[in-house]
């Protein structure tokens, strides 16, 4: 694929900042808590990438919290109760979330616009209630003291070190989350620029016309929703592992709404929009902490203004249309 020199340089700078710049700054300032913040941003950005993908087929998805919760529980149960390695439970969590998405998606993906959005809004609550009710999820007590990810070695060659034997798990989780995020967005970029992405675009713009040219729209909707939820499951599972615990309230409706806002804010027309949106929204919220009880008010006002005056997202400011598509 043809990448321009400018794009390659952008990617290079980005990788440098993430893997070298940030650790250096944190070491220099001693703000170790920043690792946790940035790790969260990376993981939330993974889940947001999924939401962005459902936008790409013209569906407003306010249910990603449900799939993050599912992923977190699946991984926790596999590690704690079945004794699996976290590194195998991670893709399993994504796949399970995707499977649930297929089952739920079959009936609801026919709905469009607000109807689909409303149903997905309910999903997170349903997931929470299910977690409260099922024996395997341990009800309100949730699953706690999940062991840290164990080491992985193939033929005696260590690939991933044992997290519990590490001095600085914060850095390890940060690196892991960043790698996952980069893989997610690289995959998303490829997908959008491949035939599947083009078919999605055709559906987003006109479903009837798309089916008249032979696009199996219901199949593609399901595939996309499954991939979207896979990302949600991965993000959630990773979160659970870092927190070493999962509760029914680990992901709530508010989280689902935030995933969606991240996409709006960054820009629905840009693959990397949700990443930027997540970063800005997460830090924006934190920075407004000083305003105490006015935090929510100021935050909401700024969001409304941003969406009003930058309907195509933050990335529409700097990037010419379609440049970094």
């Amino acid at each position: 694929m043809g990448f321009s020199g400018k794009q390659l340089m952008g990617v290079g700078i980005f990788l440098f900042v993430i893997f070298i710049g940030v650790p250096l700054i944190i070491a220099a300032t001693g703000r170790w808590d920043f690792y946790y913040t940035l790790t969260s941003v990376a993981l939330l950005a993974i889940a947001s990438a999924g939401v962005w993908l459902t936008f790409y087929i013209g569906r407003i998805n306010i249910g990603q919290g449900a799939f993050a919760l599912i992923g977190a529980y699946v991984s926790a149960i596999l590690v704690v109760k079945a004794g699996w390695s976290f590194w195998i439970s991670l893709p399993a969590a994504g796949l399970f979330a995707a499977l649930v998405a297929i089952l739920i998606g079959l009936p609801i993906l026919r709905l469009r616009g607000v109807y689909f959005a409303m149903i997905t809004l309910v999903l997170t609550q349903v997931a929470t209630l299910t977690a409260l009710a099922l024996p395997i999820t341990n009800g309100a007590k949730g699953i706690s003291s999940i062991p840290l990810p164990s080491g992985v070695s193939i033929f005696g060659i260590p690939l991933i070190p044992d997290f519990s034997s590490m001095e600085n798990t914060k850095l390890a989780f940060y690196i892991t989350a960043c790698i996952l995020m980069i893989v997610t967005y690289a995959a998303l970029y490829r997908l959008v620029n491949s035939r599947l992405g083009h078919l999605c675009r055709s559906m987003q713009q006109n479903e009837e016309l798309a089916s008249s040219i032979g696009v199996n729209i219901s199949y593609i909707r399901i595939v996309i929703f499954a991939i979207s939820s896979f990302f949600g499951g991965i993000g959630g599972a990773m979160f659970g592992s870092i927190a070493q615990s999962v509760y029914p309230s680990s992901f709530q409706v508010a989280d689902s709404v935030n995933f969606m806002l991240n996409c709006f804010l960054g820009g629905l027309g840009y693959v990397f929009g949700p990443m930027l949106g997540t970063l800005v929204l997460y830090f924006g919220w934190d920075l407004l902490f000083e305003f105490g009880k006015y935090q929510m008010l100021i935050y909401s006002t700024i969001l409304i203004l941003l969406i009003r005056f930058l309907p195509n997202g933050l990335l529409s400011l700097s990037i010419g249309k379609g440049d970094k598509k």
């Binding site: 675009r201 713009q205 006109n206 009837e208 016309l209 008249s212 040219i213 032979g214």
Partner: peptide
């Protein structure tokens, strides 16, 4: 394959 009576295109 059919075409549409109303203007039906991929706008963007």
């Amino acid at each position: 394959v059919r075409t549409f009576q109303e203007t039906t295109i991929f706008k963007s």
